[in-house]
Write a protein that binds this DNA or RNA. Structure first.
Length: 507
RNA sequence: GGCAGCGUAGCUCAGUUGGUGAGAGCGCCGGAUUCAUAACCCGGAGGUCGGCAGUUCAAGUCUGCCCGCUGCUACCA
């Protein structure tokens, strides 16, 4: 049975600073989903990258005395290094300065223009360079020194600018129809209500070009203008799909931060409708990561370097922690203590110890040869039932993007396997000389471990690979097709070695 | 101001359409055990289910008000 192709994307990062935990989190969560889909038999395309145009980059480059392109070339490197450090299995790292992207955005513009959705007008208002947003008079706040500031406290200036506009207002009904006919278009559901209410409240036309700076993609036929960064940025998903008529479009899933859900669920589908293109299936807005419950900020000095975190704890520990501890879609909190505690409990005491205790007995008592199954007794049946339920919960959770629930299910299977092992006490069987029964218990435990590790693969690709080596699982038997196929009795296993040592805060 | 959501054990949270004595994981305490990474297994302590008042034979689970928190949105002389 062939499964549908699965095209997923992360949001593209704006490289005007160094990558932070939020970038790492989004990349990891998306990577977990991509790996899951591959293991589950889907043909997957996974896109990530950087959003490199706009006034802020232009200004930062100027301040650094560099040309914008040279500046972003240098700023992008840490993002690519982070992806490498985190094991992100993207198929393409797109940069909005890529030539094919530029061509695509201009073609997209022309399609929207052909549909009579673009017109030249004048934009005036209070503009914040920092926020890249216009504000109404009423939204402004007054600083202590009397200066006008945006609601975010950034400087604003009165700006009058000729601008191209997109007839967003014409799409209100079609957007509402989209939401109502496709309730899973916006996830989690709490965001659905907010976006629907926003659209139902009426839409204004959207300014989609600027003349005040030149670092962007020129508007076709009116090169005084460069395109509004969001039009440019959102279109990266089309470029990554292979173009306007790309083979991978439409996307199955856009993973984005909750702060940009509106751009992805209102503007983006309207742009696509205008261009006569298919719409993505789902936009998922994940939450923010808090450092000990506090927002990360430079002034608090609590911004941590995710690559350094991965280095210190190990990539897979970090990946596991973020997916297990944070309910996907909600905000979450992390701290060194929490990472140590969580991963010691789940990985060292749980999965790692389960593998080690059973593999060590096979090595010591059976010469490291995969034992023969026995007839299933009562404890085997209970184990089987627990695993059946666990796998079912796992797949249901993964398919609904409840990554943390999937790991709940995995841990329930670990508990069941450890319970089975303790109940049958194979070490006592070894002493009493009942080698046959001991071997049966070890066979069942090793297979339970194999199933657990198989399901953990999307979350911890490196560690699970080592464990599957130790469990004698062939490289071509590691996707979910092989879930119900035990390792053949008689297979010689390599010497076991701990994969998840306990760690302490001191390191 | 409007709309939506939330407030349940130290921590993070589950708790279908109201109905056996309120749950899980982690942490903590005790026991057992020794195959294993002082891990695993068993047991235990700990909660006025934000507050008050109602509806009901029965409410964490419905209604009203209040307190606190969050998101979206609107407005301000």
């Amino acid at each position: 049975m062939t499964k549908p192709r699965f095209y997923l994307t992360t949001a593209i990062a704006y490289p005007n600073g160094r990558p932070h935990m939020g970038h790492a989190y989004e990349a990891i969560a998306s990577d977990v989903i991509a790996r899951f889909k591959r293991l589950d038999g889907h043909e997957v395309r996974f896109l990530t990258g950087t959003d490199e145009h706009g006034l802020k980059i232009d200004q930062a480059a100027r301040a650094a005395g560099m040309a914008p392109k040279a500046y972003v070339d240098q700023m992008v490197a840490p993002f690519q290094a982070l992806d490498a450090a985190l094991g992100i299995s993207f198929d393409r790292f797109i940069r909005t300065t890529d030539a094919d992207h530029k061509a695509l955005v201009q073609a997209l513009w022309q399609r929207m223009a052909a549909n009579d959705d673009l017109y030249l007008g004048r934009y005036e208002g209070w503009y914040s360079v920092r926020d890249e947003a216009f504000y109404d008079e009423a939204e402004l706040v007054t600083a202590d020194d009397g200066a006008r500031l945006s609601p975010q406290g950034t400087p604003v200036e009165w700006t009058v600018e000729e601008s191209w506009f997109f007839r967003l207002s014409a799409y209100q009904d079609r957007l509402l129809a989209l939401y109502d006919s496709q309730p899973d278009f916006i996830q989690p559901a709490s965001r659905f209500n907010e976006m629907r209410a926003f659209v139902a409240g009426g839409l204004s036309d959207l300014s989609v070009s600027r003349t005040s700076f030149a670092w962007g993609i020129p508007v076709p036929g009116d090169e005084r203008h460069v395109m509004y960064v969001w039009l440019d940025a959102l279109a990266n998903y089309l470029t990554g799909a292979g173009g306007l008529d790309g083979e991978w479009w439409p996307a199955a899933l856009h993973i984005v931060g909750k702060d940009v859900v509106r751009f992805h669920t209102v503007y983006w589908p309207a742009f696509l409708m205008s261009a006569g293109l298919a719409l993505p299936k789902t936009v998922f807005g994940h939450g923010f990561l808090l450092n000990r419950g506090e927002k990360m900020s430079k002034s608090l000095g609590n911004v941590v370097d995710p690559a350094e975190m991965a280095q210190r704890f190990g990539v897979d520990r970090l990946r596991w922690f973020l997916c297990r501890e944070v309910a996907f879609g909600e905000d979450g909190s992390y701290s060194d203590e929490a990472i140590v505690e969580r991963t010691n409990a789940d990985l060292a005491n749980g999965i790692g110890n389960l593998a080690q205790r059973s593999l060590a007995m096979v090595a010591k008592n059976l010469g490291g040869v995969m034992p023969v199954w026995g007839e299933a007794g009562e404890t085997e049946l209970r184990l089987k039932q627990a695993f059946h339920a666990g796998a079912e919960a796992y797949f249901a959770a993964m398919n609904s993007l409840a990554l943390h629930r999937a790991l709940d299910a995995v841990m329930a299977m670990v508990t069941a396997a450890n319970g089975y092992f303790a109940e049958n006490a194979p070490w006592a069987l070894a002493k009493s000389g009942d080698t046959t029964r001991m071997a049966e218990v070890l066979a069942a435990t090793l297979d339970a471990t194999r199933r657990i590790v198989l399901l953990a693969q999307p979350f911890m690709p490196g560690s699970t690979s080592l464990l599957l080596d130790q469990l004698g699982v062939a490289a071509d038997a590691r996707d979910f097709n092989g879930f119900n196929t035990p390792v053949a009795a008689g297979t010689q296993l390599p010497a076991p070695a701990g994969v998840f040592p306990r760690i302490t805060l001191d390191g």
